[in-house]
């Protein structure tokens, strides 16, 4: 028997998704192949206790939609959150009240003003503490303050004086510097000296250049004269040679001359 179901078919068989015909074929195959059958049975029995892994209960969060597409995860269970925060505030207030009670914290008001106290309140009205005394005290304080202020102003003025003196000194220095005018004649002299020197240099250069130019020209003219002489000499030699050739020719052929004369 050559039929062998693949793993996908075995899965379909496991989940009862095969047709009767196909299912029968797989059953036959399993009957003939006990190791595969055992494997399948193992899987089936495992599937039964896989369900022991149960779902965990979870509170789904609620999402707050700000301007789309921004999505913000809201706090879970907003009511319980509100309850918790209210309780927390209430507990804090109760604690404050308790602490106030135990420390005998009191707030009272009388002719002298408001009074915060822990424990028994004491009347701390001071008979010397009247309008006159306050005025005197204020005057004294103001006077002391004024003296301080005047001293400080004097100090600052002194500082300023010192600084202005320094500034003046600096200023006069600057002025002195400004007075140092450079003499125009000096400049003229300097410029004329430079131009003189320059002229000298240029003249020297011209002289040297002219001299060498002249020497070169003379040399060249001499060479040219020599060349012309040599050339003339050569020409003369050539003419002489030609004449000699003519003379030789006329001497060598007298008969021809004769015939020609005839």
């Amino acid at each position: 028997m050559s039929y062998k179901p693949d793993e996908a078919t075995l899965t379909s068989y496991l989940y009862g998704e095969l047709s009767k015909e196909e299912s029968a074929k797989v059953s036959d195959y399993l009957a003939a192949n006990p190791e595969v059958k055992k494997e399948l049975e193992g899987i089936q029995s495992m599937q039964k206790f896989m369900g022991k892994l149960q779902d965990k209960e979870v509170n789904e969060p609620s999402f707050v939609f700000e301007d789309s597409p921004t999505i913000v995860l809201a706090r879970n269970n907003s009511f319980s959150y509100f309850l918790k925060s209210t309780l927390a505030i209430a507990a804090s207030i109760s604690l404050l009240i308790l602490v106030g009670y135990f420390t005998q914290f009191k707030v009272s008001s009388n002719d002298n003003g408001w009074q915060l106290s822990f424990g028994d309140t004491q009347n701390q009205s001071n008979p010397n503490f009247n309008e006159e005394s306050i005025k005197t005290w204020m005057k004294e304080t103001l006077a002391a303050n004024n003296t301080d202020l005047i001293n400080k102003i004097n100090e600052v003025e002194n500082d300023l004086d010192e600084q202005s003196e320094q500034l003046l000194a600096t200023n006069s220095g600057m002025k002195q510097l400004a007075n140092y005018r450079i003499d125009e004649n000096l400049i003229d002299r300097y410029v004329s000296q430079i131009s003189r020197e320059n002229r000298g240099i240029i003249l020297g250069l011209m002289e040297v250049a002219g001299r060498s130019q002249r020497e070169y020209m003379e040399e060249m003219m001499t060479d040219f004269a020599k060349f012309m002489d040599a050339q003339r000499q050569d020409d003369l030699d050539l003419i002489q040679n030609q004449l000699n050739v003519l003379v030789d020719n006329s001497e060598a052929n007298p008969i021809d001359d004769y015939r020609n004369s005839e």
């Binding site: 793993e7 996908a8 075995l10 379909s12 899987i43 599937q47």
Partner: peptide, 21 residues
């Protein structure tokens, strides 16, 4: 493909069985 899923599932279950054993 469905076939791939089934094959993966079979192998997964078989491996899981072996691990648990």
């Amino acid at each position: 493909s469905e076939n791939t899923v089934k094959t993966r599932l079979y192998r997964g279950l078989k491996t899981l069985k072996d691990i648990l054993e």
